[in-house]
């Protein structure tokens, strides 16, 4: 397991970050980046096999609201609530994925079904305002100081470690999937579903498996984000807007590389913060505008994202070979 060594080393090095006692603002950005990266990693788990979802916000929302409602109404600690939320998100993934895959809903149709699902969750959260606070959002109850740890409400450093662990889980899941037969099967499915099924690949099961993992990771990101912010609202945890933002991060960083979504999260957060400083009150418009321009440019010139760029730099020999064979450099797996 040589590939695990760099990950373990990176996690160990990153775990020491709070010891440098960086300013709160920097800590906040780093935690947000890790959680954004986790959501993007979850999305890219499916996206790289041509299962493009425009509704991952739904999984963030299902998990985050499950956790927060359990805490506010039943006093169930997020230590238990977050896993339950993750299971709920995976359940939502199964509910959506199983019929889709069974009935061969693919391509545009799959993307639009997930879009509908994301909107359903957003509207439901808004409509159930008696419990969820509707579009005004909700705040998890503050725990008394002596019970703060039990309620997963701790300092920035504490949250950094939680977020770091969650992020590592995401990368680990990616790695485990890549080493399994499932990833080979999924590549075959993305290439040609009928051909894959004719050689004995269980298309529905493989797709469902990766959807469950993807939804669970997105759910973990959603619940932890809500717990970290101590604030939930339907716009930032469900619906088309946030779903497209997740997609943007994963695409910009590169969805075919495990580290891609993390690079994407750093770009998104960095961009957002510099625009916030540069534009002040006009920040929202400027941010959306630059996201959009970048997304278009990435699609036009760099569909494999920043990570794809690094890949090509690293392996000029491979590129020369593929060029000699008449292949297009940075060829896309069809999806």
């Amino acid at each position: 397991m040589s590939g695990l060594l760099p990950l373990a080393a990176a996690v160990a090095a990153l775990a020491a970050v709070p010891l440098l006692s960086p300013p709160d603002y920097v800590m906040h950005l780093l935690i947000t980046a890790l959680l954004t990266a986790l959501a993007g990693t979850g999305w890219a788990m499916m996206g790289r096999f041509g299962l493009v979802s425009f509704g991952h916000g739904a999984f963030l929302g299902v998990s985050a609201y499950t956790m927060a409602l359990l805490w506010n109404f039943f006093g169930l600690s997020p230590w238990i609530g977050v896993p339950i939320g993750v299971v709920a998100a995976a359940g939502a993934g199964a509910l959506l994925g199983y019929p889709c895959f069974r009935l061969r809903v693919v391509g545009h149709y799959f993307a639009l079904v997930t879009l509908a699902a994301g909107e359903i969750v957003r509207i439901l959260v808004t409509a159930l305002r008696e419990y969820t606070g509707g579009s005004l959002g909700m705040t998890p109850n503050q725990a008394p100081p002596d019970a703060a740890f039990a309620a997963m409400q701790f300092s920035k450093a504490g949250f950094w470690w939680v977020a770091l662990a969650a992020w590592a889980v995401g990368l680990l899941a990616w790695r485990l999937l890549d080493r399994s037969m499932s990833s080979k099967a999924l590549v075959a499915i993305a290439e040609d579903e009928d051909a894959a099924s004719s050689i004995g690949i269980q298309v529905t099961r493989e797709k469902l498996k990766v959807t469950l993992i993807s939804a669970a990771l997105a759910g973990l990101a959603g619940a932890l984000t809500a717990q970290y912010r101590m604030y939930l609202n339907p716009e930032s945890l469900a619906g088309l807007g946030i779903s497209l933002q997740i997609v943007f991060g994963a695409i910009a960083g590169g969805m075919y590389s495990p580290i891609g979504p993390t690079i994407g999260a750093l770009i998104t957060i960095g961009l957002e913060e510099s625009l916030r400083i540069g534009f002040g009150t006009e920040f929202t418009g400027a941010a959306a505008f630059s996201y959009g321009i970048l997304l278009v440019l990435f699609m036009l010139f760099l569909p494999r994202g920043i990570a794809g760029l690094l890949e090509r730099r690293q392996r000029p020999a491979a590129r020369a070979r593929s060029a000699a064979a008449g292949a297009v450099p940075a060829a896309q797996p069809p999806g």
Binding site: G47, G50, V52, F54, G107, H108, A111, L244, V247, F248, I251, E282, T284, G285, A286, A287, A288, F289, S290, Y291, G292, I293, L294, L295, V296, F298, M299, L300, P303, Q332, P334, G335
Partner: peptide
């Protein structure tokens, strides 16, 4: 791939929203 096309027009969605804002 169709997905890249859809995502690019999704980018335009953000551009237009941002410009309008």
């Amino acid at each position: 791939p169709p997905i890249n096309q859809v995502l690019a027009t999704g980018g335009v969605l953000f551009v237009l929203q941002g410009a309008a804002t």
